[in-house]
Computed example of a mutant assay.
Amino acid sequence: MNNLFLDPRTVRDIDKVVDRVHQSLDYTDGAIRLLEVRDLLKLDLKYYRLDDPGLIDEVIHKLKVGAKQVIARPGLLVEAIRKFDLSALFVPDRKRILIDDSIPDLKKRWYETHEIAHSLIPWHADYTLGDDRTTLSQGCHERIEAEANYGGGRLLFPNGVFTQHRLSSTMSLARVREISKHFGNTITSTLWRCVEQSDELTFATIGEHPRRPRDDKPRIEYFVRSKTFATQFANITDTEVWAWMLEYCGYKPTGPLGTIDLNIQDVNGNSHVFVIESFSNGYNTLTMARWTRQTAISVPVGDRRILCP
């Protein structure tokens, strides 16, 4: 799945509500403390497990998808969670965030922030459970989720200080790991933000280990591109990236998997050199590519050929 780019007006509207949260918290630098965010917004956080009968006691009397009521009794929440394969959700009328306690701890911070973003974006109140194929089109559902992802990213990586850290040195997976520790977030969410917010030609993928793929998982789950890359290299797909990974990635289960300098042609047929590197964190393989230079081309002039940059 490719990352979606929001229109400028939507970005401005989300930025405003997120900036107000940072200002209210007197944020300056470092990791955002989600407990303080929840206290500020008067949000409640609960964890659930589908095999825990206490879940029903923690839930609301009604729940909606769009304008459609899908839960008339609290007990139906379990069925809804299973139907939509939910790991987290926000319940607007109870101002409650529910998170599946069985997901890894490192991922809970992102899930919680994603649901906080749903609570912050005013027009999301009726669409917190996603697409039930009747109240929301797939395109609308993807847009709503993209907006929550953007809002969550802006909340965890405040724009001003994050930009300073991102531009302070050449971007690499090692630098992404350093930034992730500074802001207290996962490497995956940090990589996504570093690439999507970049003005440079860069992309990242999140997915399977190329030498150890699982049959029930997509080879590349997310193909994250900067706007400039998405425009100039609209011809490049995640299928091609997967083929490149098979050329240079090693077999070890975790850690750095390999690096390659690769010539990639843009939509105009011009060739560019990218440095591409991959790293496995045990859950996913993270790949990042960064433009280094345009390849010189050979042009015939009479009976000679000259190199042009």
Rank of each mutant, 00 (worst) to 15 (best):
I236C: 00
N235W: 11
H182L: 14
S271W: 09
I276W: 04
G269Q: 04
V161L: 10
T285E: 03
H182Y: 12
N284Y: 10
F162K: 01
F183K: 01
G153I: 01
S168C: 07
E240D: 07
W244A: 02
D261N: 14
G250Y: 01
T259Y: 09
S180N: 09
R212V: 01
I276R: 06
H272N: 15
R214M: 08
E277P: 02
S168K: 15
G255M: 10
T163M: 12
W192E: 13
D266A: 11
P213E: 05
H182Q: 05
S169K: 10
N284L: 03
W192S: 06
K217W: 09
F223I: 00
S172G: 11
L156S: 10
V176C: 11
K227C: 01
E208L: 01
K181V: 02
L173V: 02
R166M: 11
I220D: 01
C249R: 02
I264D: 02
P213W: 03
K227M: 11
R177N: 03
P256M: 03
D266Q: 07
T163A: 04
W242K: 02
H209M: 07
D261P: 00
G184S: 05
A234E: 15
L257D: 06
G258N: 05
E240R: 08
N185E: 15
Q232S: 13
A243Y: 10
T170C: 02
F279R: 05
G160F: 14
T254V: 14
V273F: 10
F223R: 04
K227P: 02
N281F: 11
S198W: 09
H182R: 08
E240F: 12
Q197A: 12
S198F: 06
P218G: 01
K227H: 12
H272P: 07
L191Y: 04
C249G: 08
I220W: 04
T163W: 04
E240V: 06
N281E: 07
L156P: 03
Y283D: 15
V195S: 05
S189F: 02
I260E: 08
G160D: 14
E200Q: 14
T285L: 04
E178W: 03
H182I: 14
F203G: 07
S189D: 13
L262S: 04
E208H: 08
R225T: 12
D216P: 05
S280Q: 11
R193Q: 15
W192N: 05
I260T: 08
L262W: 06
G160W: 12
E247M: 15
N235C: 08
G160Y: 12
Y150E: 02
S172T: 15
D261K: 11
I206E: 07
R175M: 10
H182E: 14
K217M: 08
I179Q: 06
F157H: 12
T186S: 15
L201Y: 12
E208S: 15
T228C: 06
E240P: 00
L191D: 01
S271F: 13
F274N: 01
N185A: 14
A204V: 09
T237V: 06
T285K: 00
